[in-house]
């Protein structure tokens, strides 16, 4: 206790100076979190403000944990994250390596590469909804015109085609995030180890596998962390393209939560879902940070 008092006395000025920032963070971040956590134990419905005070204990959590549809959406979100992150990484890495080799017009290429990121997700959703439409969609019409099929392929209806259609849209929009971060890593990379390896007779693949890639891994894990948080909250594109349907075939956590919260106005239950879902984001963040630390350690030894 005396120690604490001494610490406060010794650091009175810095503490006083940062206290407004702490206070603002508490108000902006912590209060809404506490409020939403509280509501997850109530029967809070948006259209009935009085229901905010109807304490129902753990009923929302019991229902969410016992709700098969929720767990299916949870599992699908994990699968979606895995597919999207891995493909974005592969394409982003390929794109960055290609752009890095360009000696003329590289700046223009970098700018062009960022175009998909500049579109609103809602716009991207509408664009791909049209492209994959079964009757008037460009993809179907193209395939039929080329004589590759006589059938109208139900891209947004079939369970797996719909899943890959929304994944395609998500990947199209955000691969450049990986590409830009990896490109930054390539720019920051010292040339000496590569030149030394080449002098020692390493092949291009060996240079990439043992020197370039380990150096890029921290950048890749930072991109993975950022994108895992983004994709775990994927909503706009999916909502526009399929609305989580048909028959829940493309339902992800946030399409389900948003519908429960706003369309159904059952905010208490939606918050319970959200708190269970946060476990997913926490897991992925923890996982990629561990990987990031390991990669950095590896680099240190390098």
């Amino acid at each position: 206790m005396t120690r604490l008092r001494r610490t406060i006395r010794d650091n009175a000025v810095p503490l006083a100076l940062i206290s407004p920032a702490i206070l603002i963070i508490l108000m902006v971040v912590l209060l809404p979190l506490i409020f939403s956590f509280y509501t997850s134990f109530t029967n809070y419905r948006l259209i009935r403000p009085d229901s905010l005070w109807q304490w129902i204990g753990t009923r929302n959590y019991e229902r969410v944990l016992g709700d098969w549809d929720f767990w299916v959406a949870f599992g699908r979100t994990v699968l979606f994250l895995t597919v999207v992150l891995n493909l974005e990484l592969l394409f982003g890495l390929g794109l960055a390596l290609l752009v890095n080799r360009i000696t003329w017009g590289q700046r223009t290429m970098r700018t062009i590469m960022m175009f998909p990121m500049m579109f609103s997700p809602i716009l991207v959703g509408f664009q791909f909804k049209y492209l994959f439409n079964d009757t008037i969609g460009l993809v179907n019409n193209g395939l039929q015109a080329l004589g590759l099929t006589r059938e109208a392929i139900p891209f947004l209806v079939d369970r797996w085609l719909a899943f890959f259609s929304i994944a395609f849209a998500e990947i199209w929009m955000s691969t450049s995030i990986f590409a830009i971060l990896i490109l930054a890593g390539l720019f920051a990379m010292p040339k000496d180890p590569i030149e030394a390896a080449k002098v020692d007779g390493c092949s291009n693949w060996q240079v990439f596998r043992h020197i370039t890639l380990p150096f890029l891994m921290p950048f890749i894990y930072i991109a993975m962390t950022i994108r895992s948080l983004d994709v775990a909250r994927a909503y706009d594109i999916v909502d526009v393209m399929t609305g989580g349907g048909p028959a829940g075939r493309t339902e992800l956590l946030w399409t389900l939560i948003a519908r429960t919260a706003y369309d159904d106005a059952r905010m208490g239950r939606a918050n319970a879902m959200a708190y269970v879902s946060i476990l997913l984001s926490i897991f992925f963040t923890w996982f990629f940070f561990r990987k990031l630390m390991a990669a950095r350690k590896h680099l240190g030894a390098f």
Binding site: A152, V157, G245
Partner: peptide, 12 residues
């Protein structure tokens, strides 16, 4: 739907 009298995408 099952008889193919409507487009497969009608559910969207």
């Amino acid at each position: 739907y099952q008889s193919g009298a409507v487009p497969a995408g009608t559910t969207n």
